[in-house]
Design a protein around this nucleic acid. Structure first.
Lengths: 162, 162
DNA sequence: AGCACGTCGTTGAACTTTCAATCAAGTCGT
DNA sequence: ACGACTTGATTGAAAGTTCAACGACGTGCT
């Protein structure tokens, strides 16, 4: 044997100094950012971030309604989690459950007017946060890079949850 | 009045198309990435990601021990959360609690040998994940940008939790 | 010394998420 | 039409996180 392989089969390649610094910044920034956005939403509108995300999706969908499983897939949540969350939102009059007419198993969640109004109000808080804590802190080029990297991550992991 | 202000005081500036695309990629990538890393650690070593992070910090600290409040601060967790998590880790023999001798209130968590061994094993899984799903998916320039942006985010939000 | 105030860590209850089990309904092959 | 298999949604219990309250201790002021 004379040349290859450069990296042998099962050896773990550790992160170098710089990669580690980046990874920790990512982890820390992510934690602090989601915590903060969640807290702002919660204290000002009584909505968690994931509830907010559900409302956003619903508000953009035709008839402001999406089937449970599609919601779960869109947000990478388990079906069970969506069931529980929608139950709470329904109890509070923010969404409504409707039996799906084309599929006997299906249930679609519909955003109520009250839910839409709540979202319209909460959106100010949320967007302000996203700007203040992220968008306005980075150059356009860095933001583009951020988008590129995170899209690649999604690509790399794909839909598979199990 | 003739010129300024360009943006008036309290108007919400919405995200443009591109910013929104980036923000969603970030949110989605983040969710999918942390879910995946968490799941890998959990199934292969019975450790959650936040437990893993605690072990990492402890392993790097002098005497492999850190005071509860410092752990909480370092990971941006509540003190209560650290108490509960450390209790579980202690029950499993992974850390130990020691009364602090310089401060009557203080408790420091110490990584046991068993905990250190577990971490040494789990680290392979974790680092492979970070590489496969993130580091190896992006150019060095983009990674640098990522680090820069996320550091700025941390800077923007700072330590304030409430 | 005494007192007010802040910090440290814990506790238990409420809430949210996960996990495994279940039931109902659609799909496919024969 | 039948059975096997997959998918959609729910359920309840277990596990984890948040929240408010508490007791113990340190700090600083008078």
């Amino acid at each position: 044997m004379t040349e290859l392989p450069i990296a042998s089969v099962n050896e773990t390649r550790w992160l170098d100094e710089e990669q580690q610094r980046i990874w920790r910044a990512f982890l820390g920034g992510m934690t602090v950012l989601t915590d903060r956005l969640d807290r702002d939403l919660r204290t000002e509108h009584g909505l968690s971030m994931s509830e907010y995300e559900i409302l956003v999706r619903l508000s953009e969908a035709p008839d402001r309604s999406i089937r449970m499983a599609d919601l779960a897939a869109a947000l990478s949540h388990s079906r069970s989690r969506i069931t529980h969350t929608i139950s709470r939102l329904e109890r509070d009059g923010i969404v409504q459950r409707v039996q799906c007419d084309t599929d006997g198993r299906g249930v679609t969640a519909v955003l109520t007017d009250k839910g839409f109004d709540l979202l319209a109000t909460a959106a100010h808080t949320h967007v302000r946060g996203v700007r203040d804590y992220l968008i306005d802190r980075a150059s356009p080029e860095d933001l583009t890079a951020l988008g590129r990297v995170m899209s690649a991550v999604q690509e790399a992991i794909g839909g598979r949850r199990f």
